[in-house]
Design a protein around this nucleic acid. Structure first.
Lengths: 240, 240
DNA sequence: GCCTCCATGTAATGCGTTACATGATTCC
DNA sequence: GGAATCATGTAACGCATTACATGGAGGC
């Protein structure tokens, strides 16, 4: 996947590995990121596959740089990937994971967590807004784009704006929810634990969950190996 | 990181690896995901580290199952991780990456891409709304929570709702943008390429970019090794 | 007869992060 | 004098995905 991010950047302009990292870190490309230790070998791999070509620039007062440019084959590979999209929902957000278990935290810790997130996302939002203003100052209203190569980045910028705004607002909302709950919560509350499995996506959970009447089961400590083999069914594999 | 998702699920209830995958796939836990081939070894690792403990359940008409339960040490590890949050902005969204290079696509392909995403996210949103309704039907208004262990999942559900709504709306907005542009675009348009590096986050790009006046440079094809060594500076390392 | 579910795993491969190393230059 | 910038890399490790394997139970 990283390869396509590299090809996309190089499609626009030849760059060095170092340049590419700058763009990942600081430019309008908020939709991807990578470390140098990943970028350099990937660039070399792409050159071996003839999707990129490199030039060496000799510099006198700085280390020499290797500038990569996209090839015809690279453009073709990029275009082919670009069309063949399929949408996946594989969220990974570690703040959300922490919030998922907020009932195990002291109220103050939970609030601190959300307040931190709120601040961080608000700052990010401000950054994006500043970028947008910069662009509008340079190129006027976004309707009249000077160049179609800016279209994609601007759409992505708008996504970033909406995302950060959404995140910030959600943090505020969640904090309010916590406040309304008052001091009821606390670490390791002793309420009975609900089985959240019931709260599943309907289309997948619709198949009625059978009461498992034939699941006659015995419990043993896995660490205790002294289970008589006669008790085990020979019909199923015994792995545990 | 996966370890904490596992610990969080097992904090609520002992489960097998298979159960855990169900929850990743279909339950309220939209904030993380993993494949079985990753889950099983991770569970065993956590048991070796004494954060989990396993029991074996013998079944007669089905394969036996290994049920994992969290230990005191596991709870401690989870709680320690939960508090020590730091916010990162490491976005990786391959649809967005494709959209970033939308100017290289035929207009119809770009529209198809966004329309696909719009539909997918609208469906997801509908799923989440159905889950919310299910919960409200069972437990009434969300203000009066029957159990604090539901609080985290509900906050996450709300995040998911807002995220999918945002994504769907952005797709619609972007499609409109494309429509307004009319037939102007096309594959490989020949406008001059802008250097997007200038559109950087202000706080990091504020340091004025110097005009590089002392960067006197020569170009050589990296594939041609016949560069006279005399031309190279001995002051810098020669790597390329 | 084929498909999906239950339940577990191995093996191979690929992707990603962290730490470490080099060394002149230039800014504060 | 110390930190950051430019520019490249290696090594070690950890995380993640894909394909493959097993084998009975039950549904269409």
């Amino acid at each position: 996947m990283l390869r396509y991010a590299l090809l996309e950047l190089l499609r626009r302009k030849p760059l060095t590995g170092y340049d590419i990292r700058q763009r990942f870190q600081q430019s309008v490309m908020f939709c991807w990121h990578a470390h140098l230790a990943q970028i350099y070998p990937e660039l070399r791999r792409l050159e071996r596959e003839a999707l990129l070509r490199s030039k060496c620039e000799i510099q006198t007062h700085r280390p020499n740089r290797t500038i990569y440019a996209i090839t015809r084959r690279g453009r073709e590979a990029l275009a082919a990937w670009q069309k063949a999209a399929l949408i996946r929902f594989e969220m990974k957000d570690d703040l959300l994971l922490r919030v998922y278990g907020i009932d195990a935290m002291a109220a103050a810790d939970g609030e601190a967590l959300l307040a931190l997130a709120a601040r961080a996302h608000a700052e990010r939002l401000a950054t994006y807004e500043a970028i947008k203003e910069q662009i509008e100052a340079r190129y006027g209203v976004l309707r009249a784009l000077p160049n179609d190569s800016l279209l994609g980045p601007l759409l992505c910028l708008e996504w970033g704006l909406r995302y950060e705004r959404m995140y910030r607002d959600w943090c505020a909302w969640a904090l309010q929810r916590l406040a309304e709950r008052g001091g009821r919560g606390g670490p390791n509350g002793s309420q009975p634990t609900l089985d959240l499995y019931g709260l599943a996506a309907p289309e997948r959970a619709s198949r009625a969950r059978r009461p498992l009447h034939e699941r006659r089961q015995q419990h043993h400590d896995a660490k205790e190996p002294g289970i008589s083999p006669a008790k085990r069914s020979r019909k199923t594999r015994e792995r545990c």
